[in-house]
Computed example of a mutant assay.
Amino acid sequence: MYIGTSDGISSNYVFNDLEDVAVLSLGTSHAVRVIHEKGQLNHTYQNFAYAIHPEAYLIGLPSNNGADVLAWANKLFNSSFAELNAIILNPPETETIFLPFINGERAPIWEDTAMAHLFNLTRVSTRESVLYAIILGMVFNIKQNVDQLAKLADFKAIGLVGGGTSLASLPQLIADVLGYTLYIPTMKNAETLGSIAAVKGKTFQMEYKRVHPNENLGYTRLYDKYKETLDEQYK
Rank of each mutant, 00 (worst) to 15 (best):
T94G: 08
T94H: 04
E95W: 02
T96M: 06
T96N: 12
I97V: 15
I97S: 00
L99H: 02
P100C: 02
P100S: 06
F101C: 13
I102W: 00
N103F: 09
G104F: 12
G104R: 10
E105M: 14
E105C: 10
R106N: 05
R106Y: 06
A107G: 09
A107K: 01
P108F: 02
P108M: 14
I109V: 12
W110G: 05
D112L: 08
T113C: 01
T113N: 13
T113W: 05
T113G: 11
A114T: 10
A114C: 04
A114F: 06
M115C: 11
M115K: 12
A116F: 01
A116W: 04
H117D: 04
H117L: 03
H117K: 05
N120C: 11
N120F: 10
N120I: 04
L121P: 03
L121V: 07
R123W: 09
R123G: 12
V124M: 15
V124R: 13
S125N: 09
S125A: 04
R127C: 00
R127G: 00
S129T: 08
S129M: 14
S129G: 12
S129K: 12
V130L: 08
V130I: 09
L131W: 01
A133Y: 01
I134H: 01
I135M: 05
I135L: 10
L136Q: 05
L136T: 14
G137M: 01
G137E: 06
M138T: 02
M138N: 01
V139A: 03
F140H: 03
F140T: 08
F140K: 01
K143L: 06
K143G: 10
Q144E: 14
N145S: 13
V146P: 04
D147M: 10
Q148M: 10
Q148F: 07
Q148I: 06
L149F: 00
L149W: 07
L149P: 02
A150D: 12
K151C: 13
L152S: 00
L152D: 07
A153P: 12
A153Q: 14
A153I: 10
A153T: 13
D154G: 11
D154K: 09
K156F: 02
K156A: 12
K156S: 08
A157Y: 08
I158N: 06
I158C: 06
I158F: 03
I158D: 06
G159F: 09
V161Y: 10
V161A: 07
V161K: 03
G162F: 02
G164R: 03
G164P: 04
T165R: 15
S166I: 14
S166A: 15
S166H: 14
L167M: 13
L167C: 14
A168L: 15
A168F: 15
P171Y: 08
P171N: 11
Q172M: 04
Q172P: 03
L173M: 15
L173V: 10
I174M: 13
A175D: 14
D176F: 14
D176L: 15
D176N: 15
L178A: 05
L178G: 07
L178H: 05
G179A: 14
Y180F: 04
Y180W: 05
T181K: 11
T181W: 02
L182E: 04
L182S: 09
Y183R: 08
I184E: 13
I184A: 13
I184H: 09
